[in-house]
Design a protein around this nucleic acid. Structure first.
Lengths: 135, 135
DNA sequence: GAAATGCGAAACCTTACAGTTACGTATTAT
DNA sequence: ATAATACGTAACTGTAAGGTTTCGCATTTC
């Protein structure tokens, strides 16, 4: 697909995929920096960083401000709110909550396949329903 | 770069970059599903979904369990904890906190470029220091 | 056993992207 | 004016990604 949703959140997700870009954002958390000083912190060429910055700017995760012959890049965390909101729907899942459910479903499954193997008719929707119970 | 950090968090970030994969995870929040039923919900071919699932599995965001001739995929949100942790460092930035700082820096800059343009010697580190104060 | 079902893997194509070097352009310094 | 600085852009390369169609392999069903 690759062009599914052009929301700013989607752009943020895509921008965050690259570890160098995440590191650039990490760096900018401590204050705005000119492109050159950013590039100096990474084992890649300046144009490479320039391109990362352009992508980050497209995702509105950084803002550029021309300052004489410098170009200062400043972090704009606002698009990360969308990322956070998406993640929010998953918070329940990584608490002990799911671990217990997971264990339950698995032992349940082993019991079933261990002694009554023949009546495995619609085991699909069954499991489906089970797991859905966690919400 | 593209092979910078092989941590599971990095893999998660990369997996989340694709909107289809995020949608698959959203779907699986409601319960485990076999590949076919997942594929049916998307306007792409089944093998395409298969590949997405493989990537998600590599990132440990889903777990596969063979169930007769089905393969059930279940959400595993645990790797998202790393994503959340990364994001955590940015939470302060999208609160009113930064907005005020941002406004301050900008008016400060306009004042400076408006009346004393000549003594702009090391305005770089200066600004740098300013913005760093937000932490 | 033969047919049907449910998938993954292979082979292939196209586009995106991270990286490079070389060049152009604007700004400050001399 | 000239040189140096600080960048971005262009052009090119290699590789990974997402997509498709074709094929093959288990597992049920008949």
């Amino acid at each position: 697909m690759a062009t599914y949703s052009r929301s700013s959140t989607a752009a943020a997700f895509q921008a965050l995929a690259d570890p160098t870009r995440r590191a650039v954002l990490d760096l900018l958390r401590q204050g705005a920096l000119p492109a050159g000083q950013i590039a100096r912190q990474f084992p890649v060429s300046r144009p490479a960083i320039s391109k990362h910055l352009r992508l980050l700017r497209r995702a509105r995760l950084v803002e550029e401000r021309r300052e004489g012959r410098h170009r200062l890049y400043r972090l704009n965390a606002e698009p990360l709110r969308g990322v956070d909101a998406w993640l929010n729907e998953y918070r329940n899942f990584w608490q002990s909550n799911l671990s217990r459910l997971k264990a339950f479903v698995e032992t349940e499954h082993e019991k079933q396949s261990a002694h009554s193997r023949k009546k495995e008719k619609s085991g699909l929707e069954e499991k489906n329903g089970n797991v859905a119970d966690q919400s």
